[in-house]
Design a protein around this nucleic acid. Structure first.
Length: 587
RNA sequence: CGGGAUGUAGCGCAGCUUGGUAGCGCACCUCGCUUGGGACGAGGGGGUCGCACGUUCAAAUCGUGUCAUCCCGACCA
C-alpha cells in the first residue's frame, strides 16, 4: 500500500476526551473514530489489526476442533424469557420492539441462541461432544462506557459454546479451550495469566479469566485487581472478586477489655478508627456491620472490622443479581440509627419499610467473624455500641467468605505472601453445566435412551479489547509498537526525499520485491520531510522500517526495529532478506 | 443513577468576567522554497459558537431548560 493512498489521518495532538493510552494512541494514529458514546468506527488500519486477531483466534479454535457459525445479532425476547435472563440481565441488555410490537434485544452474548440451536439439532449422545463458535459484534448498553475500545458498548467478541454428555466431558472441553487460549494470546504477543474468577451474570461454577497484567502506573487501564502467588510451583492467581487468602493470627477475643454484655456510650464514633481509639481496643475485636440493598432486599453483612467487604462475594452469598450499599438516609429509616451504629443484635425484630422486599433482614457474616468472642457491635442507636458480645447473644447468621483479600495475606494453596496487580480481562472460560439446557429444555438421549440436559461450557475472547490491550502493553512515548503478528502492516519503506531519483528507485524496488513475497508493506511515497514520515511511522507502529536516504550513495539502507529501536545498515537486498527472515520466524 | 467538569472549524484551544455579529496553532487547498526526526513565506477554503426558549436595539458572551461528552463510584469481553 502506498502511504499517499492509505486512508489514515494522524493527529498532532491527543484527543481531549481520551484517558487511557490505547484510546489516545488509536485515535491519534488514525485507527479509530468515535461515532457515539462507546461506539467506534474501525478505520482501515484498525480493521486490519482486528482481522489478524480474528484469524489467530479462528485458526486455534479450528485446530482445537471447534466449528465456526454465525448467529443473529438481533434476538427474540422469548428465548431470554425461557432462560430467565430477560428479567435479570438488567439495563445492559439493549431491548427494542419490532414493527409488530414484539420484544427483541441486541445480542450481548449468545447462550440462549446457541442452546436453541443445540435443542433443535442435537438429539443423540452420538453427536457429542461439539463446540460451536462465532466472531461477531456484541452490544451491551454499559452504564459507563469508557477507555475507548477497552470498554465500548459495541465490541467484537469471539464466543464459543461446548456441549457434552457429562461433567467429565465438559472438563475435557474446558481444558482444550484453556490450552487454545494460551496459544492464542501468546501468538498475539500478549502475556496472559489465567485467574480464577466470579462467574457473574453468565452463571456456572468453575471459571477462569485471562488477564493481561498491567504493572506500570502510567495509566489506569487495568480495571481488575488480580491477586497472585509468586511461588512458581504454586501459581495461584485470582480476580479480587474471587480471591481467598489465609490470614495472619490476630487478637479476636475481647475478654481482656470487656466482661459481659453491656451497652456503652460511644459518641461520634462513626468510623472504625474512631471507635477503636475511643474504646482503646484493636479493630480485630470489633464486628463491622454494613447494610446492602440486594435485589431490593435488606441485607446486613458482618466482618471483622480490620477487613473489607467484597461486594460481589456478598451478592453471591445472598444469591442476588444486583447489589448496592444502603444510603445513610436509608439506615436512619430502617434502624433509627445513623451510619456507624447499626448492628446485628435483635435484628430479627427490626421492621422493614414497605418499599423493600422480604420480611426480615438477611444476615451474612464473613468467616473471620466466626471465631470472634467478646466483641463490639453497633447498638442500632446513635452514639451507642454493645461491648462483650458473643454469638450466643445473636441470632445465628449465615457464614460465608465475603472478604476482600489484601496484599501480603497468605496464599490459600501454599502459604506464601500474595501480591496484587492490575489486569485487563481479554478472555474468559466458564463451565456452565446445565443452567441453560435445563431452563430451556435442551436435551439429548444418552446411551440408555434416557433424556439428559446438555452439559455446557462457554468461552469468550474480546477481539477488539485484545487489540487495545496489545497497545496498552506495547507502546512508548512515540506511539504504538505492535507485535508483528497483529500489526496492520509489517514494514514501512521510507524514501527520505522523493525528489531524489535514486532513493525513490531503490525504495520502489524494495517495495515491489516485498509485495511479491507477500510481505505487507507500506511505501511512504509522500512528498513530506523525513521528520513527518518518521513520526507517523513510529505513531502508527510499523514493526519494521526500511529507510532509503543519503546512505544509498554508499549502497546502504537503514533497517530499524520498532520494538527495540535497533538500527542497522544493510544493502537493499540484505534488507529484503532480513524482513523475510524475521517474518519467517514470527508469522 | 449519584458527585464533579466541559460543549466555539477535522484535532488542540482562546474569546465569555465587562453583550456590539468569531479568532489562534495544527490539519486541508494553491504557489514558492525546503528535504534524515512533526521546516519556512505568501495566498486561500471551512464554524447557524451543542440545541431550545427567554432578556436586550443587539447574545458565543447574561438567564432558564434540554441534549451530548468526559472524569470519580456500582456492571462486564
Amino acid at each position: 500500500m502506498k502511504m499517499s493512498k492509505l486512508f489514515v489521518q494522524t493527529l498532532r495532538d491527543y484527543p481531549s476526551d481520551a484517558e487511557v493510552i490505547s484510546h489516545k494512541l488509536l485515535v491519534r494514529a488514525g485507527y479509530i473514530r468515535k461515532l457515539a458514546n462507546g461506539i467506534y468506527n474501525y478505520l482501515p488500519l484498525m480493521w486490519r489489526v482486528l482481522k489478524k486477531v480474528e484469524n489467530i483466534v479462528r485458526e486455534e479454535m479450528d485446530a482445537s476442533g471447534a466449528q465456526e457459525l454465525l448467529m443473529p445479532f438481533v434476538q427474540p425476547e422469548e428465548l431470554w424469557k425461557e432462560s430467565g435472563r430477560w428479567d435479570v440481565y438488567g439495563k445492559e441488555l439493549m431491548r427494542l420492539k419490532d414493527r409488530h410490537d414484539r420484544g427483541m434485544c441486541l445480542g450481548p452474548t449468545h447462550e440462549e441462541v446457541i442452546t436453541f440451536i443445540a435443542r433443535e439439532g442435537i438429539k443423540s449422545y452420538k453427536q457429542l461432544p461439539v463446540n460451536l463458535y462465532q466472531i461477531q459484534s456484541k452490544f451491551r448498553d454499559e452504564v459507563r462506557p469508557r477507555y475507548g475500545l477497552l470498554r465500548g458498548r459495541e465490541f467484537i467478541m469471539k464466543d464459543a459454546y461446548s456441549f457434552d454428555v457429562n461433567q467429565e466431558g465438559l472438563e475435557k472441553s474446558y481444558k482444550i479451550m484453556a490450552d487454545a487460549y494460551t496459544r492464542i494470546f501468546d501468538r498475539c504477543g500478549l502475556e496472559t495469566k489465567a485467574v480464577q474468577s466470579d462467574s457473574g451474570a453468565i452463571g456456572g461454577a468453575v471459571s477462569h479469566e485471562y488477564m493481561v497484567l498491567i504493572d506500570d502506573n502510567e495509566n489506569n487501564a487495568g480495571e481488575n485487581d488480580v491477586f497472585f502467588c509468586k511461588n512458581k510451583s504454586c501459581g495461584y492467581a485470582a480476580n479480587a472478586n474471587h480471591a481467598v487468602s489465609v490470614l495472619n493470627p490476630a487478637e479476636t477475643d475481647g475478654s481482656k477489655y470487656f466482661s459481659g454484655l453491656n451497652k456503652v456510650d460511644t459518641p461520634n464514633t462513626t468510623t472504625i478508627e474512631e471507635l477503636a481509639a475511643f474504646l482503646k481496643i484493636p479493630q480485630t475485636v470489633i464486628l463491622k456491620s454494613m447494610i446492602y440493598i440486594a435485589d431490593n432486599k435488606v441485607v446486613m453483612a458482618l466482618i471483622r472490622a480490620d477487613k473489607t467487604f467484597e461486594e460481589t462475594k456478598v451478592m453471591n452469598a445472598v444469591k442476588a443479581h444486583d447489589i448496592r450499599s444502603a444510603a445513610p438516609a436509608e439506615l436512619e429509616a430502617i434502624f433509627g440509627a445513623s451510619k456507624g451504629f447499626v448492628g446485628p443484635k435483635d435484628i430479627e425484630k427490626v421492621k422493614i419499610p414497605d418499599e423493600y422486599d422480604g420480611e426480615t433482614i438477611q444476615v451474612v457474616a464473613d468467616l473471620t467473624a466466626k471465631e470472634m468472642k467478646n466483641f463490639v457491635i453497633g447498638a442500632n442507636e446513635t452514639d451507642k455500641h454493645f461491648t462483650g458480645v458473643n454469638w450466643s447473644d445473636l441470632k445465628e447468621p449465615v457464614f460465608a467468605d465475603i472478604r476482600l483479600v489484601e496484599k501480603g495475606e497468605k496464599c490459600p494453596d501454599c502459604g506464601e505472601p500474595l501480591y496484587v496487580t492490575k489486569g485487563i480481562e481479554v478472555g474468559n472460560i466458564f463451565q456452565l453445566g446445565t443452567k441453560y439446557s435445563k431452563a430451556m429444555n435442551a436435551v439429548f438421549l444418552d446411551e440408555n435412551g434416557k433424556t439428559q440436559p446438555f452439559i455446557m461450557g462457554c468461552y469468550g475472547i474480546g477481539i477488539s479489547r485484545t487489540a487495545a490491550a496489545a497497545v496498552e502493553r506495547h507502546h512508548d512515548e512515540h506511539g504504538i509498537k505492535w507485535p508483528v503478528a497483529i500489526a496492520p502492516y509489517h514494514v514501512d519503506i521510507v524514501p527520505v526525499n522523493v525528489q531524489n531519483e535514486l532513493q525513490t528507485k531503490v525504495a520502489d524496488e524494495i517495495y515491489e520485491k516485498l509485495l511479491a513475497k507477500k510481505v505487507e508493506a507500506v511505501l511512504d511515497d509522500r512528498d513530506e520531510r523525513a521528520g513527518v514520515k518518521f513520526k507517523d511511522a513510529d505513531l502508527i507502529g510499523f514493526p519494521f522500517r526500511i529507510t532509503v536516504g543519503k546512505t544509498i550513495d554508499d549502497g546502504l539502507v537503514e533497517f530499524k526495529t520498532r520494538e527495540t529501536g535497533e538500527v542497522i545498515n544493510l544493502t537493499p537486498e540484505e534488507a529484503v532478506n532480513k524482513i523475510l527472515e524475521v517474518l519467517g520466524i514470527t508469522i
